[in-house]
């Protein structure tokens, strides 16, 4: 439904998006994950025809955004919830959008009701909290009942109730067969929101898959407490290609499974008191995936886990 091919975008001397290729399919919630400044928003702006790419192209249902005949009925988007004229009321903001795409005003009241902001429809948008603005942005995205929806960091500024509401809402949209594309810089958020995740860093495609497949690509460690740590360490090292650290508490082994560690200990005649596989946390996975591609990394303090 959304297709990005060899997309490249420079701003002056910096490359915001670098030869990006991916596809977003209908019926699932697709997460768009990357650190801040990795090119997520730029990519979304190009998909929406706001920015012009230097190379490549982005299409929705096979067409460039500007070629869509009735854009709001094909694509709904929420980029920056605060990017609304502050002096206009929520209802007039939505009515102006509806009028441009020949959407009846009755639909404006429907989406206001759905987004839970019908009671403040007459208020000026400038007085809205970020959470209310997010809801207004979602109402605007839904105006044309589109098949494809894009949300840039939609969870920002929402309270826990709102976050839950929006997750359920994405799920419902996807179950209706729509294409739902949601960006975030938080892996934990994506883990509960998205079925499929596209990871980018420094404007480049890194990987794509479900949360489980992404987590599996980053191997965890195995922690062992045994009768003789030195003997175990020697046996492990003899095995070759094994990284292991020993301290008073026990041995932490990378690059081996718990089964392999158990077998080596058994063969070496070491008694195991404790054997714990430690799965990489979501944040560790994210750090691992994007570590080479952090635009604004904190220098000096590297996150080693």
């Amino acid at each position: 439904m959304i297709k990005v091919e060899h997309l490249t975008k420079h701003y002056h001397n910096t490359i915001a998006v670098d030869d990006l290729d991916f596809e977003v399919r209908p019926g699932v919630v697709t997460g768009f994950l990357g650190p801040n400044g990795s090119g997520k928003s730029t990519t979304m702006r190009i998909i929406l025809g706001l920015d012009h790419p230097n190379k490549g192209r982005a299409t929705v249902k096979g067409k460039r955004y500007a070629e869509l005949r009735d854009p709001m009925q094909e694509v709904g988007a929420l980029l920056d919830a605060k990017a609304i004229h502050p002096g206009r009321s929520a209802r007039n903001h939505l009515r102006a959008l509806a009028a441009s795409n020949r959407i009846p005003y009755s639909r404006v009241d429907e989406v206001l009701e759905f987004a839970g902001i019908a009671s403040v429809a007459q208020k000026k948008v400038g007085s809205f909290s970020l959470g209310m603005s997010q809801r207004l942005g979602i109402a605007a995205a839904l105006l044309g009942d589109p098949e494809v929806l894009l949300f840039d960091e939609p969870v920002n500024g929402l309270d826990p109730e709102g976050i839950r509401w929006i997750r359920d809402f994405f799920r419902t949209l996807a179950n209706e067969g729509r294409t739902v594309f949601v960006s975030s810089h938080l892996m934990s958020e994506m883990a509960v929101t998205a079925d499929q995740i596209i990871v980018i860093g420094r404007g480049k495609f890194i990987t794509q898959g479900s949360i489980d497949t992404l987590t599996a690509t980053v191997k965890g460690t195995v922690f062992v407490r045994a009768s003789n740590h030195q003997q175990l360490l020697a046996a492990l090292t003899a095995h070759g290609g094994v990284t292991a650290d020993a301290n008073d508490d026990g041995v932490t082994i990378g690059s081996l499974t718990a089964e392999q560690v158990g077998q080596i200990a058994f063969d070496a005649g070491v008694v195991i008191y404790e054997l714990t596989p430690q799965r990489a946390s979501l944040e560790e996975v994210f750090m691992e995936l994007t570590s080479d591609a952090v635009e604004y990394g904190s220098s000096g303090v590297r996150h080693e886990s």
């Binding site: 702006r45 929406l48 500007a66 709001m72």
Partner: peptide
């Protein structure tokens, strides 16, 4: 100044 040009252009890309 309000940023609403982006919303406007999403609704009317022409």
């Amino acid at each position: 100044s309000s940023g609403s040009m982006r919303t406007t252009l999403t609704a009317v890309p022409k």
